[in-house]
Design a protein around this nucleic acid. Structure first.
Lengths: 242, 242
DNA sequence: CTTGCATTCAAACGTTTGTTTGAAGCCTAC
DNA sequence: GTAGGCTTCAAACAAACGTTTGAATGCAAG
């Protein structure tokens, strides 16, 4: 191949995929505000100052656009979680990592994403929390694929930190943790639904996670449920109720 | 007014609001399966074997139908929660109620609803969990109104049981609890998302709540977050990350 | 200049949406 | 029987939906 005098193009690549990014940004904002079904491609392309056909041209379909919106932030976040966990484990040497630190590896990347001044950030986590509850098959399939390796990785880490906790119990508690986390992050006005919190720090996700972490940590390390005893008590109340 | 010989109608009232109930049932099932936006009135009326116009005739609009679907189960459940709490408090006399019992008053009516063999039941709780994450203004407005008194009532009860816990912290923890609860109940295939749980008991909501209760209880009684200490540790990891 | 490729655009595609309409049906009460 | 109020029905409404099309446009290489 002759060494062609490859002159550096004076013109910068103009706007490679500029409209593609504009569409992604607009879609992210609108999906988060109204949800997937309630957001039309016309609204998205209008907000992005792009042509209606741009979505189908660049992404193929509305579903693929939604997946692209999620992947853009979700993939790096989950990757950061695994990387942080790996780093912490390496730092701990042969000693098992504490639950608290494992939990931090799970929460900190989410916090960093929420803090990201770049467009999206906090709003994206709301979108994510909402996607968690979406019954659309393609969304569920996509999310379970995105989360599979990350969850498995953390489950193994927690299992080492909590050797006495049965695996099944751990699976449930991890499920509860993801639930409280995604629900909390998804909270639109849900916060006001529960209580009037001081408005000044309501947008401060760092404080939120610092409150959430001890809550989850305590739940994770809770004593095993004494099923029979709890059941008897519970049924007693149920009997009086029924 | 002359005492008219009011003969007991031989014919039973035929079908008073029969189609109305059929529409409610069909709407509940379809809303739960596909979500609010993705469910069309045509699909609902077809499943209910009713005319398309029946929805607008009986309920006024699709939004009002959705609220009717939620109210039918939600209202009795929240009422049962408050009544059970009141009964437990009365039984405890002057002594403050334990956190565990207050928590049970919150969970048991949800469990009973999930157990209800009547159409709906478990499926409805999934619909409810999903509605929690829906950004539609009329849904959020409706839910916050439905929950306001119940939440306030339980917050006061928890405040008595946990006098040392600052009110703001309690508000957050109640929020986390409602999050884990609604997310867990909303779990469609979300369970499979986290872990492969044994398929036999996966539909047993009673076991689910017996696992959830200790988790939430521990979180509720968790030590106060040592904000400064946690922060320093957290920022240390963040520093290494960034 | 011309060719070729990637992108943008306006317009239209065929469905599907929630809602409305006015007539038909049914049962009760007079 | 006949009037009158609910309820049901088929049909149509305008609007909005996601997607497709084919021509125009801009830019780089031959």
């Amino acid at each position: 191949m002759p060494a062609k005098a490859r002159i550096i193009p004076l013109k910068p690549p103009r706007d490679p995929a500029a409209t593609k990014i504009r569409v992604l940004d607009a879609a992210e904002a609108l999906f988060m505000e109204h949800g997937y079904e309630a957001t039309s491609l016309r609204a998205i392309t209008a907000a992005a100052e792009a042509n209606l056909a741009a979505v189908n041209y660049h992404f193929g379909s509305k579903e693929e656009l939604f997946q692209a919106v999620l992947t853009r932030r979700l993939d790096p976040m989950n990757q950061a979680r695994v990387e942080l966990l790996t780093r912490l484990e390496a730092g701990a040497g042969s000693r098992p990592l504490s639950c608290e630190r494992i939990l931090m590896a799970l929460l900190i990347p989410a916090l960093k994403l929420a803090r990201d001044p770049e467009r999206g950030g906090k709003d994206f986590l709301r979108l994510l929390g909402r996607a968690y509850a979406d019954p659309a098959p393609f969304i569920r399939r996509f999310l379970s694929e995105q989360y599979a390796v990350m969850i498995a990785r953390f489950k193994a880490a927690f299992a080492r930190a909590l050797p006495k906790l049965p695996r099944k119990e751990l699976s449930w508690r991890l499920h509860f943790i993801m639930g409280a986390l995604s629900y909390t992050l998804a909270g639109t006005d849900a916060l006001k639904l529960i209580a009037e919190l001081n408005p000044h720090e309501s947008t401060n996700d760092e404080i939120l996670l610092r409150r959430l972490a001890p809550f989850l940590l305590a739940g994770l390390e809770a004593p095993l449920p004494d099923l029979s005893a709890v059941t008897r008590d519970l049924d007693g109340e149920l009997g009086r109720t029924a």
